[in-house]
């Protein structure tokens, strides 16, 4: 089991953040979920917390997840944090751009069920040991 169980979710939809809050309380109550609705908030959290993993929505209110990925790649200390995209955008061009920017995986919204979401996350090596 990892020592660091801090996960950051970057999503402007409070319902999705609440969903993940409940999800992680059930699958592993030791996980601490930090929430950001914008990139400014996300960067502030990353600078002040030891984040082990990032869940990122692509379609934020004022920015895109790709903006974050590009920023992340320019910062050596943030670049090492694994990122998984959670999005209903599945256009090949967008997915490819995310892959080119170093994401670990791409999970499509909506999730079929929380059990399937758990199974899906367990298949991601950087995440598996947390669940």
């Amino acid at each position: 089991m990892l020592d660091n169980l801090n996960i950051l979710i970057i999503d402007d939809d409070p319902e999705i953040r609440s969903y993940f809050n409940k999800f992680f309380k059930i699958v592993n109550s030791d996980i601490q979920l930090f929430e950001a609705e914008s990139l400014v908030q996300a960067i502030d959290i990353i600078e002040n917390q030891d984040i082990a993993f990032i869940l990122l929505d692509l379609n934020l209110e004022f920015e895109t997840g790709v903006d974050f990925l590009k920023f992340r790649n320019s910062m050596s200390d943030i670049k090492k944090i694994p990122v998984v995209i959670i999005s209903s955008h599945t256009e090949q061009k967008m997915v490819k751009e995310c892959i080119n920017n170093g994401i670990k995986d791409f999970i499509k919204k909506p999730f079929d069920s929380y059990e399937q979401l758990k199974d899906r996350l367990k298949k991601i090596p950087a995440f598996a040991s947390m669940l």
């Binding site: 939809d13 319902e15 999705i16 969903y19 999005s87 919204k109 909506p110 999730f111 079929d112």
Partner: peptide, 9 residues
């Protein structure tokens, strides 16, 4: 947003 969320609930 509706399309991307309903199924999750």
């Amino acid at each position: 947003k509706i399309a991307g969320s309903g199924g999750s609930y």
